[in-house]
């Protein structure tokens, strides 16, 4: 479970996240949406301690993130918008092994996790392949496998569909659905909603750093059209980025 209480994040004069409180339960499939600059990316970066709150707290599995960053980063896997900038090794197997290696696990355990993580994204037996040779969809799946190898309880994906063609997008989405059915909570940050509302359990829409809508997915279409939150219906080429200065 991820519990956010009165979280505020300021970058100089700008308030990127404004007193947000919310709880994400185990196994939930949550969509966090909102226009560029609405604070959705900044919000999720607090889930595993990549940002330090100006005020407020975040707890993962009942443990404050600030007290045990390693526990938070193990429990909350995160996949970023440009998966090619998250790879640290030249081959698929070596890259997926990076997280488990950092945890100091035994070689047998690392191998088991790499095998399982690659199987979960349909890339079994591709360990020796070079990452440079992969398509965009395959890169996205290797990025997810790298996070899964930490065996997280929650998986956060920031704009996972950027730059993917429709078949690749569908394939990644199928894998996310399967993960969520098996009990991992999946949190997708995106402004590209399209058919995603029908796949998820819950939709959170942010505007100007605050939660504007938080409702079950069945009510989401009405809520989104009623609210003043502008949510682009179709894909845009670039996603949200944070203010540069801290």
């Amino acid at each position: 479970m991820i519990e956010v209480q009165s979280l505020t994040q300021q970058f100089g004069e700008t308030t990127a996240v404004d007193t947000v409180s919310l709880t994400i339960n185990d196994g939930e499939f949550v969509l966090i949406t909102g226009p560029n600059g609405s604070g959705k990316t900044t919000l999720v970066r607090h889930f595993n301690g990549l940002r330090t709150p100006t005020s407020g707290t975040v707890q993962v599995n009942a443990m404050p993130v600030s007290e045990d960053v390693v526990a938070a980063r193990t429990a909350v896997g995160m996949v970023f918008q440009h998966p090619q900038d998250g790879f640290v090794a030249a081959t698929i197997g070596a890259d997926v092994a990076f997280g488990p290696e950092n945890l100091g696990l035994s070689h047998d355990e690392i191998n088991r996790r790499v095998t399982n993580a690659l199987a979960a994204v349909n890339l079994s037996d591709r360990e020796p392949d070079r990452i440079d040779s992969l398509s965009g969809g395959e890169m996205a799946r290797v990025g997810i496998a790298g996070a899964l190898a930490m065996e997280p309880d929650h998986l956060v994906l920031d704009e996972p569909f950027t730059g993917l063609d429709e078949p690749a997008r569908q394939s990644v989405l199928e894998h996310l659905k399967t993960l969520s059915e098996r009990g991992t909570s999946v949190i997708v940050v995106t402004h590209d909603l399209r058919d995603l509302i029908d796949c998820c359990d819950r939709v959170i829409a942010m505007n100007a750093g605050a939660v504007a809508i938080d409702c079950p997915s069945t009510d989401a279409r009405d809520a989104l059209s009623d609210a003043a939150v502008y949510v682009p219906p179709v894909s845009e080429p670039e996603g949200e980025s944070e203010p540069e200065s801290l």
Partner: peptide, 23 residues
């Protein structure tokens, strides 16, 4: 720009001084 994104990815994957070394 690459470095900034890479450093987030490294942190998120528990980049540590004492990892298990390859055999």
């Amino acid at each position: 720009a690459h470095a900034d994104r890479l450093s987030l990815a490294l942190s998120t994957r528990c980049f540590a001084w004492n990892p298990t070394l390859p055999r």
